[in-house]
Every structure is written in structure tokens, then in C-alpha cells.
Design a protein around this nucleic acid. Structure first.
Lengths: 205, 205, 205, 205
DNA sequence: TATGAATGAGAATTCATTCAT
DNA sequence: AATGAATGAATTCTCATTCAT
């Protein structure tokens, strides 16, 4: 009965995309189902043929749309050779994807906490996906000797995703436009080598 | 009825604290003014003697409560000597403060995007405050030679605050309790030296 | 899906029977056309090929189905010889019919008042039919001397149908099952001879 | 928190009475909360200060208003001496009460089946109250010899209440007004002595 | 005939805010 | 200052009905 099997997924995706636009503009709770319907060019009631309720639109968004985005990161990362290359690639894809779909970026960054109460599993799945990618990068780097041993993987993952999300968030709220992806390499460099000077060496070791 | 945490304050603070508790529990938009009033032990109408409207409670929270927290960071950082010490101190204070006031942490992390539409200036002020602290640390480090030159200060600030926020966020959603501050040093180390191995040196330079 | 009770009938009767089942379960106003359609195994739109609107299903039910039931009473009553026999027969048929079709019983007893606003004529027709039967029984009884003269026929009819309906209604809401028809004779006896003792005779006369 | 303790029970009873009028006119399901509010001269939202929801209005009606009516019957019956007198008294009060408050009568007769799904206990309580009254009449009659032994009390109660309700129901739907209470004595007589002629005697005995 | 996706009017309910006390 | 009853606009969601296929 779920409508992925819709004729071409037409209305379903029209509504989903419209919803993301509206939510990005006004926030989830300040958006009305009517607004989403109008933006999608359907009647109010039509929404409920495809979504259980207003919240379900957000859940579906995170379940399918955003999740798939994270899956794509994996593919991109696998193409790079070195750990550093992979890291740059991950961050670049992350930044590029969100830059390409600003609406999704806004909704992802603003509403994920709201939705986490109801769609905890989906959120965890995305988070885990990211953690897996980071783990694979770290492992690769440790094998080639470019990444140090004894890392707290979870912490590394949190640092990376936190840094990237914050970079995106700042970009979203910036007054003047600028190219987000141009920050991929500098950020990857920072994450790889830290802010410390090489001269001082690694304090701990 | 709840009077335990009535920190001797007047009605204004009683309401503000009650609101943070309620908002943390249910989210801003899913909380009602009545709930805040009940939690504060005042009548619904009383809220409006101290706050312009529901949203204003959140704005006041960010204007005074959260902002002051960021101000405190500055003081703590100034006490440390080395740049690395300052960084650890900043992160430690950040983590400790949010660990001590979980309600504030939830509201800060969840609702800041909602409020940003209406309280952009306050948000910017906090952000700028953090940027200043980071800048002072970097400057200090560069003078003592422990932090490299040519850093994109804004990017460094975003990396740090993003990493810390993500660490806090993960802690908030974790199933089992753990000590957040114990992550301060490991995280500071990561930010300082990156995940790369010293052996490889700084690729770029 | 439910096809068991599809009494070989065409769509019209399939829908009508399905509707009675659904209405009995949930009440007319709390039932949806979709539910009736699903129960009947047809598409929503198909309902409207056979019925003017939702209400019309109920009207048709009372027009044809329930009405026919009352017609059957007449036939049964005519077979009995004595007035008392006829009365017992009427009540027995009444109880037996409703016991056999519990769904109809529920709808008849619960929804007749709702429908009376729109299908007054049908209701009156059924009521008149019952009044006629009662009148024929009374007439028969008066001829054979078993029923007293000077009866308010309308009142007698109301007493009988009221008593029987109430007996059925109680049975419907009873917690444990019991045989409804076993109450036919006791009730007929009560209606025939009243609750007074013979010794006291008829007070009035 | 329940609002019986309202200042004079003002709004609460205004709404309850308005609701009964509206429900009587249109039926419960075809009445809107807005209509009740308008009839009561209050805002829509005010309804919800006194009633949990629309259905609760009906439940409260049956819980307090109608139930009390049944309680009154008891008092009236106790005043009469003979069993026959008590019976006439019961029926007279029953008819008079409903004649005096036509709205209540309509709602009671039309909506009791709807509400029984949700307020089974209240309905049972009223029914039991009536059964008790009937039982006391019968017992009294049996002691004085005016009512026969071996009666199925439950059946007698169902016959009486069914007959009375049907008489009221017919009166409600009648085209021309007539005095309902004038039927009390004839009906009591019928219930007491049945429709049979004294000459024929009691078949069973 | 039959379908069932789409519609959109309509209803219940909530809740921020006001204001008489 | 404080109260909390009252308001009514706004919102979500339902569902009878239609109509293109």
C-alpha cells in the first residue's frame, strides 16, 4: 500500500519535495499541511493518501531521501586511494551534496533534533553509516601509516561530522553566497593535521 | 508545584528555568505556555508580565542565559597559559557546562535553529564570542609557536564548535550515561594534532 | 475479502449486507463508505452506482430489508388459529428474526431514530404494518372472546412492540448469550394477562 | 478540576442544556461543537474547559441529568400505597418528565444506543435503577396479593420500560400534539391486566 | 459497469493571548 | 502584580463524493 509503487512516484515525490521546500523556508512546526499541499499543487487531502500525517512527511524524508545521501558518500569515498584522499572526498561530497540541495540542508540541520524523538532508528542508521565510513577511512590510513593508531573512532567521527555540519550551517546562515566545496580541502587538512604546528610534535606519544 | 529547583529567584527566573525544562522535554513548539506556567508554579497570565510572548521566552534564554555561558568560557580560557592549555580549557568548560545543565544543552542544540529566524543577532553574538575566543587561542599559539600560521580562523572556529556540539549532542542521545568532560582532552588533542600520524608530516607545506 | 456471507447475491445485495454488518459494528455515522466498500469487496465508487449516497444505504435497508421482515410477521401470524396463538407467533417470529440476524437487529434498534428524519415514510409504513397485525390479532381475539373490548389499539401496539424491542435490545447488550426466542411465550403471556393476579380481577370495570 | 464547582455552575449547565437542545434537533453526530457553543452563547473553545470532548457532553448528560430523572421516579413511586398505584405513579412520572423536557426525551431515546458504546456503566446504572423500582412494585403487589407470583422480574421490567419508551417515542414523532400523561393510566391498566379478557382466565396456572 | 485516486469542504480540537477581577 | 476563565483563529485530519480511465 505504500506509494513508492506509485505510477512513476509522481505525487509522492512532488509532495515530498514540496514539503522540504516549505519546511526549509519556515521550519517544520511553522509549516502547515495546506502550505505543503499548495506548494505541491495537490489538495490537502491528497497529502494523506501518501503520508500518515504531517510528521510522517519528515520521517519519510529522513528515511529515504537523506539516508540515500549518506549511502552515496560511501560510494564516493571508495573511489579514492589514500586515506587522506578518502577524507577529502567524503567532506567534498558532503559539502557538495548539501550545497546542491540547500532545502535538504536546512531541513536536515534544523529539524533532525525534532524528528529524532520519533524517528530515532533512522537517525541512528544515518549516524552509523557515517561512522562506518569514517572507520573505513581510518583503517585504511592506519594500514598505509598516514593515520595514527589508538584513535577513539567514535570521537573522530563526531569531530568530522560536527565540523562539516557546522561549516554547512554557517554557510546556510551567511549573508553572502560563497562556494562551500572550496572549504573541503582546507577542512580535511585541518582534520588530518590539526591546528598545531608540526614543529611542536605530538604532545602525546 | 515544583519548587525544588526554584533557585531563590524571582518569578522571571523561575519562569525562564521552568521553560527550559519544559522545552528540553518536549521541544519548543510542542510545549504550551500553560505547561511552562504550571512548571513555574505561576498562572498562565503571569508569563505575559515578564515575557512578550512564548517565543520571547526562548529569545531571552538565548540572550541572557546561554550567552552568559559563552562569556564564562572566555574567563576560563584566560586562566590557562599555553595555547593547548587554553584549548583544553575551552573544551572542558564547554562540555562541563552543558553536562551540568542538560536542559540547557538540549534547548541550545535543538532549538537554536528555530530561534535563529527571530533572534539572529543573539545567535551571531554568541557565535562571534566563540570565534573571538578561538582567535585568541590561535594567536597565543602562534606566538608561542605551537599553532601553525596561515590558519583560516573562521574555519578553525567552526571545526571546534562543530566538534564539541556534536560530542554533546551524541552524549545527550546516548542510551547509557557517561562522563562528558572526560572527552575534553582527547578531543583537544585531536583538534590540535589531527588524526594524521606525525611520521607523515604535514602533507601541505 | 469477506466473502462467506456473500449470499450469492448481486453487488446491490452484497453492499447492503456489508453495510448492515459495518453499521452494526460501528454505528452509521462512525462508519465510512470506504469501510462498507471494503467489506463488500467492491470499490468505493461502486457504492454510488447502486446507492444515491451513504444515507441511502440505510434508507434502502429500512425500505426493503427490514420492511420485508415485518411483512413476514403477517404471514406467520395468519397461520395461527387463536388470538393468543397469533400473539405468541408474532412475538416468536419477531424475536427469532432478530436473533437470526443480529446485525439487522443492532441497526434497526440503534439507527432507526437517525434515519427517521429522512425516511419518515418508511418508518411509518413499518409501524403501520405492525399496527395492522396487532389490530388483526385483537380483532380475532375479541371475536373469540379471549381479548377484551374497548382497547386502545394504538396503545396496545405500542406496548407490544416496545416490550419486544426492549427485550431484544437487552439481549443485544447482554454479556452472556442466551436464547431469545425462549422469551416469546413468557412475554406473550405477560402481555395477554398482565402482571396482576387473576384473583384481584380487573380493577377497572 | 471538574466544573460542577463552578461559580453557580453557570457555564457548565448552559452548555449542557444548549447541547441537549441541539442534539435533540439534529442528532448527536449531525451536531457540531460550534453549534452547541453558539446555542450556549460561548466560544467554541469554552466547551473544552468544561467537557473533555464532544462525546463527553453526551456522557455527562446521561451521567447526571438523565440519571437523576430516574432517581426521581423512585421517590414518586414510594409515595403511592398499592402496587397498582405505584405502577401508575411510575408511568405517570416517566411520561410527565419526558413530556416536560422534550429535548431530553429525544436525546435519551435517540442517542442512548450511540452512547452505550462509551458509557455502558451509566446506562446499566439507569437500567438497574428502573429494574429496582419495578422489583419493589412487584414485591409490594405480591405481598398485597395484587400481583401474581413467579414473575420473571427482568422480563417485566423490560416490558414496562419498553412500552413506556415506545409510547413516548410515538408521541415525539406524532404530527399533532396530545397529552402524554393521559396515557399513563390506560397503559398501567394494560400492563397490570394484559389485553386478555378476564373471562378467559389465566392460561398458565 | 467498475475503479480508486483525488478532491476540498467541514469538523474537532488546541492554545497563545487577553482582560476583568 | 497576579490570576485563570474565556476567547476564537488556526490547524490537522477525515471522508463523502466525483470522474477520468
Amino acid at each position: 500500500m505504500t506509494r513508492e509503487s506509485n505510477t512513476g512516484g509522481d505525487k509522492y515525490h512532488r509532495i515530498l519535495n514540496a514539503a522540504v521546500r516549505v519546511f526549509a523556508r519556515q521550519g517544520f512546526f511553522q509549516s502547515t499541511v495546506s502550505q505543503v499541499a499548495r506548494e505541491a499543487g495537490v489538495a490537502d487531502g491528497t497529502i494523506y493518501l501518501y503520508f500518515k500525517n504531517k510528521e510522517d512527511i519528515l520521517v519519510q524524508f529522513f528515511s529515504y531521501r537523506a539516508r540515500q545521501v549518506f549511502d552515496d558518500f560511501k560510494i564516493a569515498v571508495d573511489r579514492a586511494e589514500s586515506a587522506f584522499g578518502k577524507l577529502k572526498c567524503l567532506i567534498d561530497r558532503h559539502l557538495a551534496t548539501f550545497q546542491e540541495d540547500r532545502h535538504m540542508a536546512v531541513v536536515y540541520l534544523s529539524e533532525i533534533h525534532q524528528i529524532s524523538r520519533v524517528a530515532e532508528p533512522q537517525i541512528r542508521a544515518m549516524s552509523q553509516r557515517y561512522a562506518d565510513i569514517v572507520a573505513s577511512i581510518v583503517e585504511c590510513g592506519q594500514q598505509e601509516g598516514s593515520i595514527r593508531e589508538n584513535l577513539n573512532l567514535g570521537l573522530v567521527k563526531r569531530m568530522i561530522i560536527g565540523a562539516v555540519d557546522e561549516v554547512i550551517s554557517t554557510w546556510l546562515h551567511a549573508e553572502n553566497e560563497y562556494d562551500l566545496t572550496s572549504l573541503a580541502d582546507p577542512l580535511a587538512d585541518l582534520l588530518m593535521h590539526g591546528i598545531g604546528s608540526a614543529a611542536f610534535g605530538h604532545a602525546r606519544r
